[in-house]
Design a protein around this nucleic acid. Structure first.
Length: 860
DNA sequence: ACCTCCCGCCATGCT
DNA sequence: AGCATGGCGGGAGGT
């Protein structure tokens, strides 16, 4: 066991699969083995089981730290008890103990509760895998095995995996299997989450709650109602509550989200919880506030105690895992009332829309539910649609998303279902889609903004980039490497890019630029359409894309496209996937399945009418461009139209496989990127200083990150986009008005002058270089692999909660988000409401925060 | 007495 | 029916 470390990348499950989950007693032996050696020095209570894991990847630093943090107490106890032998080879001892000991003794001997804590368990779990796994290696995780090895019930593993999944550190492959991604996508994910959090106005909500509390202290009970309303409205509208799982672009998260319950709490709660940290200025979030916000809908005050308590319990679970990841640490906030447990973000600073623009997009659940028959209601409990319809996203979007998800699920989820071979595939298939949408949306925004100023080229570039990024980052190792290379150059990426292509090309053999991408997209989209029934425009985004593509490409048949896409996916993976020996067949299967999926979907949905619908829709929309982005993802279409379409296509393609081409394009894109950032900024943070940074970042991200998706964009745009036309317009206008400067800036990332005002705020004087530096800060264990994404780390200066502009920004945002799903209808009215709400909220924002004294005490 | 949160029942969903 | 997931909250360990 010990030897295992040998490999740089070990395979997670080296062991045979044993199914039986053992309980501690039984499994004890096994378990012990597993634990890492790293601890060595420490007496880690836990079992050292496998040493192997630790080393290769991350420098064990993380583990050590974690362990040290966690374990000291435990160790001591353990030692006392003698139960643990943390050292290796002890398992036996343990067993003996058990056997010998009689009831009481035995029990005593058993690990104390702490030893069984989720946090510790999580450390053990994490210790098994490198932070930056080699994509080439098989990184599958067998839950049963892990449970056995760690000697815990499977239920606990689910808790961990669910949280990790929310961060896209793992993704579900199949029934009992997950794929370990490590921190490769972490920054990107965080960036996306931040963007989404901003969209949801979490910061505002937090302030409101604090304010409320503050008032309460003074017995201003009345304020509650008002505030509550506000909160509710925000939540609902913004969609927090509604939000479903936020998916990232590249990584194959799609798979992860597959499960039926996907949207449920733990995962979503985890993401929301993280969002709170990313959005709040002090980056300290108390459990109480988090619980209130997460509960959202319910009247905060009214919350039943039980519900509140339950929420808190869950938050502890999540916090334990996040703590193990070193993303947060426990602290206490002292307020007038007293000390409250809270957590402080200790993870990397994230720029709102770090690298990717498009990758992420939150899935809207609530609305869809209603509309959709689908069983999976996103939020059964938490987000309950019930309370209010919240949605950040338009119904149409939601529908799309759901449909997509459902498809995915069907495809992926089947527990028994064969494992998806490569992430690449799956990710490409599914992931791209969403991300693309997001990207598109972002692009559109950009375009809109830029319209005035800049030409489409940028747009295209961006698109291309986005496309590229996604595919590349997650999957291909090589890509990542390349990316890394690129990163340095940042702005100059262009030059770099070219290089990449060649390397990539090998990896992604077949990928035809457009063909692959096109098809794949189409596939996804269609289903949605079909299922959704939705309005043509709104839903069709994907389809539209296809349509566009098809148009561009000469209407390749969807089927072909799908097939191509599949192929491409397969091709893409190669590099990354290789590792998995077993699966050669599987891969094929997977591929095929994908193809099938695509074909099915396509055939079913697309062919039947989706395409036609799309076209029609498009026509209706008028412009092709519009069409492309049907639902608003791409909203900007009109303006972008010609360009947009192309860009879209390219992006899609890129995303899927084209990496090479895309990359190439992307380089140019750099310019593009900026735009994205601007968009993001505009949307989310118009007021915030972020913008500048973003700009900076974006380039970097682009260059650096293969993934390319701009989470921010995605997040922000995705939902909103739906009604492209109106919404977009509004956006644009607003942005221009508010953001214009930023926008411009973004537009010309490198050279372009920054908008004066914003700039000042952001102070981005740093240029690309800065970006990079920041970005990497956090992780770097594995240089090469590190994230390609590289989100820009742009750190924003301080963020202030509510800058002056908030209102405008909000309104804008709202419009996006809100956009009524209806394809045709832009969301006028709804928006209004929001605005009102928002404004209110805005006012609220200023609410005095309480003084929080944070005593950073570490817990554990 | 309160904070944490483990534990495992049992609902949910898929096969 | 059987199995995989995972919501949920009782109640116990810690402090």
């Amino acid at each position: 066991m010990e030897n295992e470390k040998e490999n740089l990348f070990f395979e997670p499950h080296k062991r045979g699969l044993m199914k039986t989950p053992l309980k501690e007693s039984t499994a004890a032996n096994t378990v012990l083995t597993e634990i890492q050696p790293d601890f060595g020095p420490l007496t880690t209570p836990t079992k050292p089981k496998e040493i192997s894991q630790g080393e290769p990847w991350t420098p064990t630093a993380n583990l050590k730290m974690l362990i040290s943090a966690v374990s000291p107490e435990i160790r001591n106890r353990d030692q006392k008890r003698g139960l643990f032998d943390s050292r290796n080879g002890l398992p036996e001892t343990k067993d003996c103990l058990h056997e010998h000991l009689s009831g009481d003794e035995y029990e005593k001997s058993q690990p104390s509760r702490k030893e069984k804590s989720l946090g510790l368990l999580c450390h053990k779990f994490l210790a098994r895998y490198p932070n930056y796994p080699n994509p080439a290696v098989n990184n599958d995780i067998c839950l049963d095995e892990v449970a056995e090895e760690l000697n815990v019930e499977r239920r606990r593993i689910y808790d961990i995996v669910n949280v990790l999944e929310s961060l896209h550190m793992v993704s579900r492959l199949a029934k009992n299997r997950y794929t370990w991604h490590g921190r490769h996508n972490l920054n990107k994910t965080l960036g996306t989450l931040k963007s989404v959090g901003e969209e949801n106005k979490y910061a505002e909500q937090i302030m409101m709650i604090k304010k409320k509390e503050y008032e309460q202290e003074f017995d201003f009970s009345k304020t509650y109602s008002i505030e509550d309303h506000i909160i509710k409205s925000n939540t609902g509208q913004n969609g927090h509550p509604d939000m479903c799982f936020v998916e990232l672009p590249g990584v194959e998260f799609r798979a992860a989200s597959v499960n039926s319950r996907k949207d449920k709490s733990l995962r979503v709660m985890s993401q929301k919880f993280v969002m709170l940290f990313l959005v709040s200025t002090p980056q300290i979030v108390s459990l109480e506030i988090a619980a209130k916000i997460l509960i959202g809908e319910d009247h905060v005050e009214d919350l039943d105690r039980s519900k509140f308590k339950t929420k808190i319990r869950r938050l502890y679970d999540i916090a334990n895992v996040l703590s193990s990841l070193n993303l947060i640490k426990k602290v206490h906030v002292t307020e007038e009332r007293g000390r409250k447990p809270a957590f402080k973000w200790t993870g990397p600073e994230i720029s709102p829309s770090p690298s990717g623009r498009g990758p992420v997009f939150p899935l809207p659940c609530s609305d869809l539910e209603a509309k959709r028959p689908s069983k999976d209601n996103c939020a059964k409990n938490l987000f309950s649609t019930r309370g209010k319809p919240n949605f950040t996203r338009h119904p149409s979007l939601i529908k799309l998303v759901k449909s997509i998800e459902s498809d995915r699920r069907k495809i992926n989820s089947a527990p028994s279902s064969p494992i998806k071979t490569n992430k690449a595939e799956s990710s490409r298939d599914l992931a791209p889609f969403p991300s693309k949408m997001a990207q598109l949306a972002a692009i559109c925004k950009m375009q809109l903004e830029e319209q005035s100023s800049e030409p489409r080229k940028k747009v295209k570039v961006q698109l291309a980039r986005s496309g590229q990024c996604k595919p590349v980052a997650p999957l291909d190792t090589p890509a990542s490497a390349e990316l890394d290379l690129t990163a340095p150059s940042l702005i100059q990426p262009l030059g770099v890019v070219p290089l990449l292509p060649s390397p990539l090309s090998p990896a992604v053999p077949v990928i035809l630029p457009q063909a692959p991408s096109g098809p794949s997209y189409a596939i996804y989209l269609q289903p949605a359409h079909a299922q959704t029934v939705t309005p043509p425009q709104g839903l069709s985004p994907t389809p539209s894309c296809k349509a566009t593509k098809s148009k561009d490409a000469a209407d390749a048949t969807t089927e072909k496209a799908s097939s191509d896409a599949t192929k491409s996916g397969a091709s893409t993976r190669p590099g990354s996937l290789l590792p998995v020996p077993e699966r050669p067949g599987a891969k094929n299967r997977d591929k095929e399945p994908a193809g099938e999926r695509g074909s099915k979907r396509a055939s079913l949905l697309e062919d039947s009418g989706s395409k036609k619908k799309f076209k029609e829709d498009l026509k209706g929309l008028e412009n092709v461009s519009a069409t492309l982005f049907p639902s608003g993802y791409l909203i900007p279409l009109t303006q972008c139209s010609s360009l947009g379409a192309e860009s879209i296509l390219s992006s899609k393609e890129n995303s899927s496989t084209l990496s090479p081409n895309h990359r190439i394009y992307s380089s140019p894109i750099t310019g593009v990127i900026p735009v994205t950032s601007s968009e993001l900024t505009a949307v989310n943070f118009p007021s915030f200083h972020v913008t500048p940074l973003k700009l900076m970042v974006s380039p970097t991200s682009v260059a650096a990150v293969p993934v390319g998706n701009s989470p921010a964009l995605t997040s922000s745009h995705p939902v909103p986009v739906q009604n492209p036309s109106s919404a977009i317009v509004n956006f644009t206008l607003q942005h221009l008005g508010l953001l214009s400067p930023s926008v411009q800036v973004s537009a010309s990332p490198g050279a372009v002058p920054v908008s004066p005002r914003i700039e000042a705020v952001s102070v981005i004087s740093d240029n690309a270089g800065t970006q990079q530096g920041r970005a990497s800060r956090y992780d770097s264990p594995v240089p090469g692999q590190n994230q390609p994404n590289g989100q820009s780390v742009a750190v924003m200066g301080t963020q202030q909660p509510v800058p002056v502009t908030p209102k405008g920004s909000q309104s804008v945002a709202e419009s996006f988000f809100r956009t009524p799903g209806g394809p045709g209808k832009p969301t006028g009215p709804s928006c209004v409401d929001f605005d009102g709400a928002n404004k209110t909220s805005v006012g609220t924002l200023f609410v005095p925060q309480r003084k929080l004294e944070v005593s950073t005490e570490d817990v554990h």
